[in-house]
């Protein structure tokens, strides 16, 4: 742990993909694990929101029910878009480990575009629902629905801002051990959001329209 501040030697390290252990390597691995622990706590956050939704989803208070409200074509599109973006963020990581900065930034941009399309579709869907009178205050079902799906959408939006910031860092510093760790982390975050969406899609939408 004594060499944890030696980022000065970091330049060019990631390019030739060597296995040299020069101290910071372990520290970056530890930081990555710290992020994994954050993801587990985020899992618990979504768990509580899912629990709330599952308990309240029949309490529609005379308002619209799930099967009346949800329109599957848009949701199916969102699902495949997010799934594809999870894949492209993985391709970005692959490019990074080959020292291909252009490929890395390119795939990150593709991921951002897909993520932005996802958020746009979701916001459009929400606005349409609100327009039809299905507001967050209409019923316990809709309160829990907007909280759960909205929290996921917020996570995706934060991820988009984060990826743009990382692209700026990549153009300035290149692929260093520090940016490598950051890209690994955002990729984990993005896969995690896709996993959460699978359960939103299954439990909220599919079971809702069944």
């Amino acid at each position: 742990m004594a060499h944890n501040a030696n980022h000065a030697v970091s330049q060019g390290h990631g390019h030739d993909h060597d296995h040299g252990h020069d101290g910071h390597h372990d520290m970056e691995a530890l930081r990555q694990m710290g992020f994994w622990l954050f993801l587990i706590t985020d899992c618990i956050l979504f768990g509580t929101l899912f629990a709330t939704y599952l308990v309240l989803h029949n309490n529609t208070a005379g308002g619209p029910t799930a099967s009346e409200l949800f329109e599957m074509p848009g949701v199916i599109a969102e699902t495949f878009i997010l799934l594809t973006s999870s894949f492209t963020s993985g391709l970005a990581v692959l490019c990074m480990h080959k020292g291909n900065r252009k490929g890395l930034i390119g795939w990150l941009i593709v991921t951002i575009i897909l993520g932005a399309s996802f958020v746009t579709l979701e916001v459009t869907e929400f606005l349409k629902m609100i327009d039809e009178g299905a507001k967050i205050s209409t019923s316990a079902f809709l309160s829990s629905f907007y909280t759960l799906v909205g929290t996921h959408g917020l996570h995706v939006s934060v991820g988009l801002v984060w990826m743009i910031a990382l692209i700026i860092q990549l153009t300035r510093h290149g692929i260093t051990p520090v940016t490598t760790r950051k890209i690994n982390i955002i990729s984990l975050y993005w896969h995690f959001l896709d996993v959460v969406w699978i359960f939103v899609f299954t439990i909220v939408y599919m079971m809702g329209v069944m």
Partner: peptide
């Protein structure tokens, strides 16, 4: 291990609430 712990907590929260 962290994942398993997290999943146990999530399952207890979700199934317990239901």
């Amino acid at each position: 291990m962290a994942l398993i712990l997290g999943l146990v907590i999530v399952l207890v929260i979700v199934l317990g609430s239901i």
